[in-house]
Amino acid sequence: MPAAARTVGRPARGLGGSDARLGWLLVAPLAIVMLALVFVPLGMTLIDSLYRVDPMRAAQPFIGLRHYVDLAADTNVRTSALNTLALVAICVVLETVGGIAAALLLQRIEKGRMWLLAALIVPWALPPVVNALVWLWIYHPSVGLLNNLLLSAGLISHKVVWFNDRATALFLVAVVHVWRMLPLTAIIVLAALQAIPTDLYEAARLDGAGPVRSFLTITLPLIAGGLGIAMTQSTVFAFNLFDEAWILAGASLDTRTVLIQVYMSAFQQLHFSYGMALSVLLMLASLAVSIFYVLGVYRETRID
């Protein structure tokens, strides 16, 4: 930030000056919304997860960590946790590899890049539910496009009911999610690529480095920051996958994610605080993996 901005941003005034009053006046509406609808409910989630809160049962006794103990033994919870981990792994790998490939390709396009970017970004902009419905039709066991394409390519000998097999089902759910999220990685990586000075590549070529070597020694280290953010976003979004799995396979245990399990516990079986305990665990997992992102935000705040 230029020095001039700093003098305006931080005038030498004491606390409680007109800056402070105006500052809080401008921030107040948003702070109230966030407090009432995010931070208070967040506190309620943490506290209520230690009580038995069921709308179907009268008392709300304190039960300590009982829900958390029960969650650890709940086979449905374990299965959904494994499903979520599998989805995270598949999604992050495919989005990162595919996103880098797409970004490297786009970087070489000079004419019409804006149009290609628009085409690339469309799946990201659509409602995930509609994406899932589009792919539900592609995955249709008897008249779906996937079966027909694989049959005519000779890759399968007969039509497959894709969601009969757990691993296949998980992979196909992940594909729909990757279809939506890959553009985000590609765009972030592309922005990072464009910030690399081209003379670095010239120098590497003069030194006799091939394309693979200059990718590993120049490109990859210089896009690491953007890639880190993109991968964190991929991870957080995959951790909270709901729409695609719900539309493609409903409550099926084969593809049930932790978030679907939370939804079913709370809003179908009406075990509110049990669902809260599970969402606390999901939140902690989500927070743990995005710690780099949070640290990035914090560092940014500190610098200016």
Binding site: L42, V236, F239, N240, V262, S279, V280, M283, S286
Partner: peptide, 8 residues
């Protein structure tokens, strides 16, 4: 995620 606070 926003879903974390959905029940309360």
């Amino acid at each position: 995620p926003a879903y974390t606070v959905m029940i309360p």
